[in-house]
Amino acid sequence: MLYLGLSGLIVMGQVIRVGIADLNIGRSPDVIVTLGLGSCVGVALYDKVAKIGGLAHVMLPDSKQARSGQNPAKFADTAIPLLIEKMERAGASRSRMVAKIAGGAQMFSFSDKNLQLNIGKRNVEAVKAVLAEEKIPLVAEDTGGSYGRSVELHTDSGKFVVRTVGHGIKEL
């Protein structure tokens, strides 16, 4: 399948899409993509030996503050362990995994500080705390700001491409 990636490169493998509050894994040369991250955080995990990657589109920090029985991919504290488990089942090793994250923006700013929607910041903090708890090193991040991001994890190289509107493209 021919696919022009976020950075304009032709992608040889399968393109795996991750929706909002969703997660998925892939192996080289697959590319895992999630579009339009605002306050949500894209969490990419990668094992460079097995060349297996995983991507989660995390929407909220904490499943314990929500109604029970919800989709685990929605929350940082449940999505990351689930992603690790899926990658391990596919043959990845937890001890080799590294993490790259992007997103957690504040899309709207209000003059009234009481109305500030700081969910993006809370998401980033929660993701970092869960990664630390799971002992997965965070090797790169592009978080915060007030603009949206689309991200792409290349499982052949571990490259994490972040595209924005008006703030350029970054490779992490």
């Binding site: 339009g36 605002g38 909220l60 007030s146 949206g148």
Partner: peptide, 22 residues
């Protein structure tokens, strides 16, 4: 008082989805 953002639809909505998604 309103706030404005011009960006990708997904990114703009996600804030609202997150606030309400709980």
């Amino acid at each position: 008082v309103p706030a404005l953002a011009v960006d990708m639809a997904g990114a703009i909505l996600d804030v609202i989805l997150a606030e309400l998604g709980q």
